[in-house]
Design a protein around this nucleic acid. Structure first.
Lengths: 191, 191
DNA sequence: CTCCAATCTTATCGTTGGTAAGATTGCCGG
DNA sequence: CCGGCAATCTTACCAACGATAAGATTGGAG
């Protein structure tokens, strides 16, 4: 029937973790359940991930890679980077729900930190020159990050969805417009 | 030695859940461990909470009550309500880490929804009249909520702490100042 | 003082994460 | 073509977990 060797078990387990996370959250599934979904014994994933934390670490690493890709593709348009942030969260909540829960995985994993820093870079460079004074660069960066991340988090937790029609990106656009309008318009000419 | 009846097991279990959550996150402890910390058998909590989800529901309910209290005490000063939001998250992360993870508890619990709506009320009424036009009231409310919640979340996840000296409230103050400055200053006179 | 209801314990079950030891198979060097 | 090694997967097992059932203890109302 099914061959002894799965073929691409690593991929299958990660995919199973993603769909399971979308269905019941990162704490709503067991490693054994992922193995069942992949059609292997419950210890087969050990060889690829070590333990359950390893699976979540792999999900986080892959998530941050895709996340950084999505942000970088907005190339320069800082407003759209914010929208992309929210869109990623909505369309990839399996990744997102794990990524920002560092207590669930090994946050110091090299693959994770590398991709995370890449994503962070888009925010940092994008916020540079957005603030009235250079001293406030950091505050603006944190502010923009906060509003974007906060909206995405609230959306995923269902706090916003309830009383809203349309997708997250559309709603986010109108919110960011009001909140960042003056900030984006009042750019000092020299910076 | 220890009496058959604990005295106030419900309180003891909730407190144990809070400290355990602060130490290892809401998924980092077992119901049996809480019972051990309280010095009772591992099934004693059942009578008070039903199951593990019941404990987390009780934590969330109590958290939202304290949260609403903290927000309401800022009475009118919307800026300080935002700071109080962040301060609550920092000083009560045991509660906060559970509250905004509705997949962990029964989010439709009456006690939870009541206190949550009370907290939400502070935000909604505070944001009213803050936007340039009445049509944008909702967008501003979501925006302010997003930035405040986002900052608190990022702080707790350790994303901000790294490169910052001082407590969360101080940093939040400087961030909110930059981001909400113009919004708070440009209030239309009539509203 | 009695009895009932609240509270807590012991016993047990199926499931989980993790480890150890062994079976299967792809594949590389000869 | 093939021998053997390393990667991959399995079965067997363990302690811990969440949950349920049945029974023991105790405080308090009448």
């Amino acid at each position: 029937m099914s061959p002894y060797h799965h073929g691409n078990l690593r991929r299958a387990i990660i995919d199973a973790a993603l769909t399971a996370t979308e269905e019941a959250g990162p704490s709503g599934w067991s490693l054994r359940e992922l193995a069942r979904r992949a059609g292997v014994s419950h210890t087969a994933p050990v060889h690829h991930f070590g333990d359950k934390t390893g699976v979540l670490t792999a999900v986080a690493a892959e998530g941050y890679r895709l996340f950084a890709d999505a942000l970088e593709q907005t190339a320069g348009d800082f407003f759209e980077a914010g929208v992309a942030y929210v869109r990623f969260a909505e369309q990839n909540r399996g990744y997102f729900d794990v990524m920002f829960r560092p207590d669930l995985y090994r946050a110091d994993d090299p693959a994770v930190t590398a991709a995370r820093e890449r994503a962070r870079g888009v925010l940092v460079t994008g916020a540079r020159g957005l603030s009235p004074t250079p001293e406030q660069d950091r505050a603006v960066m944190l502010g923009v990050w906060s509003i974007v991340h906060g909206f995405a988090s609230l959306w995923l937790s269902g706090a916003i969805t309830e009383s809203t029609t349309g997708d997250a990106a559309t709603t986010a656009r109108s919110v960011f417009q009001v909140m960042l309008d003056q900030l984006l318009r009042n750019l000092p000419p020299s910076r």
